[in-house]
């Protein structure tokens, strides 16, 4: 398994690149599911994996489709390893780490776009330049989507269109992405002709 390919569409659609170890005094590596493999691949390429791990704090949770490679990451023997059961349980820990973090810390995000986006949002909120946050998308392509009408967010969207889990509108899933919300945008597809909804297809797995 390698980097999940992303077809370039519009400028706002996030793109990803393989992780690479860079100089820093703390490496905060945040991953879910198959993202663990992006991390082990990076370590194989790193000139000094042991030195990197001695400064590494892992935050990990299973992916949206259930992939759990915690054991593999834990076995690497990093300075700290934290496993959360879910992304919502992982994020408060990230907040806690960010409160005390200093410049010289580096960020590596890997796995689903939902995890990458939400971790990026929280790191970016500190003022750290988002372009310096490394991101490698692996595994599930399920999307986190904001309904542009009711503003509710639906996690793990698989089909397009789908029904907003908050207001019930039929939403077309756009590639238009908000870094601040960490979500793709969903737009009502039958606004002009209520009820005329194209057949829903599975686009994200």
């Amino acid at each position: 398994m390698t980097l999940t390919p992303v077809a370039p569409t519009i400028r706002s659609r996030p793109v990803y690149a393989p992780l690479a170890a860079v100089p820093g005094h703390l490496h905060l590596v945040i991953a879910d599911g198959e993202g663990a493999e992006a991390v082990t691949d990076m370590l194989e390429r790193a000139p000094d994996a042991a030195g990197f791990l001695a400064l590494t704090h892992f935050l990990y949770c299973p992916g949206p489709t259930g992939t759990d490679l915690s054991d593999r990451l834990q076995a690497l023997g990093a300075m700290q390893f934290f496993r959360a059961p879910t992304i919502p349980a992982l994020l408060p820990r990230l907040q806690r780490v960010l409160t005390d973090a200093h410049m010289g810390s580096r960020f590596y995000l890997a796995g689903s776009e939902g995890l990458i986006g939400q971790a990026e949002r929280d790191i970016m909120a500190t003022g750290f330049p988002f372009a310096a946050i490394q991101k490698e998308h692996r595994g599930s392509t399920l999307r986190r989507v904001q309904c542009v009408h009711c503003k509710g967010i639906t996690e793990n969207v698989a089909t397009d269109p789908f029904q907003c889990s908050h207001c019930g509108l039929n939403l077309f899933v756009r590639d238009h992405y908000s870094r601040r919300l960490a979500a793709f945008q969903g737009v009502n597809i039958d606004a002009e002709d209520p009820g005329e909804v194209p057949e829903s297809v599975v686009r994200f797995t």
């Binding site: 860079v22 100089p23 820093g24 005094h25 960010l98 973090a101 200093h102 410049m103 010289g104 810390s105 580096r106 790191i123 500190t126 003022g127 750290f128 330049p129 372009a131 310096a132």
Partner: peptide, 27 residues
């Protein structure tokens, strides 16, 4: 985290500050 560095002065000083920061992991 989230600090931005601004340096203005003689050429040698700028190179020293930016080089040190980059080696210490400042993006």
């Amino acid at each position: 985290i989230g600090t931005h560095l601004y340096v203005c002065g003689p050429k040698g000083m700028i190179a020293w500050v930016l080089g040190t920061a980059e080696r210490m992991g400042w993006p």
